[in-house]
């Protein structure tokens, strides 16, 4: 096998998983940036987006439309959670914020179990997208959904980049993340900014959920838990609160996991998550503020 093709294959693998981490960690960072809240319920928006898509497809909606609908429903769910559960505790201690989001996760996952049972359900991916593309005599293998994942992530990131640099709302969101008090003084409508941040964050998570379900083939109530933890790692590595940091962290994590699988002996690969977490902890000890953030706030 040619080393170049091997490298290309691993890069595709890394990008396919990294882009999902990036999509989820962006939302975590966005919300942490503004509210200083580690939102454990963020991963559940993946579940909401994926299940909503599944229901829409079962109701006869064409797949593409169902995906858009699913993402929008995920976005809406995030906004509702903010309005109902998070706003009343805004400004409380770190622990209160954290616990509230834990409770929301617990409720949403059990709501998922109540409605859909806890067993995984097949995700109705059109056969066309599930096709395996094989090139160079099978030396380069990927599915169409891998390509679609990359494309969708690319479009989402471009949209986000445009939104936070070109629109007043997006600039306001960044301003709020830097200094919520000053944003308030300047007269930005902070409540609205926060709702929009949740819509955006949850929409991205919903999209990640649909793509995740498409890649794995199944939807289940607890599907958001592991990606959420990975996204936390990605966001923290990148610099918690920084959007470019979250994207960078997501792709770095994807690359790291791919390398563990590709280069380490197979007896070690089952411990992939453990290795990643151990590395995170080591990283945090040496650079608590992340790669892209230098504000000393993160540490004691």
């Amino acid at each position: 096998m040619s080393p170049l093709l091997y490298l290309t294959q691993q890069t595709i693998n890394a990008l396919a998983i990294g882009s999902l981490y990036a999509l989820v960690s962006i939302g975590l960072s966005l919300i942490f940036g503004i509210l200083r809240m580690a939102n454990f319920a963020h991963g559940d928006m993946m579940m909401v987006g994926a299940f909503a898509t599944l229901l829409l497809v079962h109701a006869g909606v064409p797949f593409g439309v169902a995906v858009v609908g699913g993402v929008l429903i995920g976005a809406l769910a995030g906004a509702l959670v903010e309005r109902i559960a998070y706003r009343p505790v805004r400004g409380s201690s770190d622990v209160t914020l954290l616990l509230t989001s834990l409770a929301v996760t617990y409720i949403l996952e059990n709501l998922g179990i109540l409605i859909f049972t806890s067993s995984p359900q097949n995700f109705p991916l059109p056969a066309l997208l599930d096709d395996v593309v094989s090139m160079f005599d099978g030396q380069l293998i990927f599915t169409r959904i891998n390509v679609l994942t990359l494309a969708a992530t690319g479009v989402a990131l471009l949209f986000l980049g445009w939104f936070v640099t070109r629109t007043t709302m997006g600039l306001g969101m960044r301003a709020a993340a830097e200094d919520l008090g000053a944003a308030n003084i300047v007269g930005l409508d902070v409540n609205r900014l926060i709702i929009v941040a949740f819509v955006l964050a949850s929409g991205f998570a919903g999209l990640a959920g649909v793509l995740w379900a498409a890649q794995s083939g199944v939807v289940e109530p607890a599907m958001g838990f592991t990606p959420l933890l990975k996204a936390f790692i990605a966001a923290i590595i990148g610099g918690f609160g920084s959007i470019p940091g979250a994207v960078l962290g997501g792709f770095l994590l994807g690359a790291l996991e791919t390398m563990i699988v590709a280069f380490l002996p197979s007896s070690i690969t089952p411990y992939r998550d453990a290795i990643v977490f151990a590395l995170l902890i080591a990283f945090l000890l040496f650079r608590p503020a992340g790669i892209l953030r230098v504000q000393g706030e993160a540490k004691l």
């Binding site: 580690a38 936390f232 995170l280 945090l284 004691l300």
Partner: peptide, 16 residues
């Protein structure tokens, strides 16, 4: 670690 980071990291311990 402190604050949120310790919570995330200890959840990581659970997963490990």
């Amino acid at each position: 670690l402190s604050g949120h980071f310790v919570s995330v990291a200890t959840l990581g311990f659970l997963v490990i």
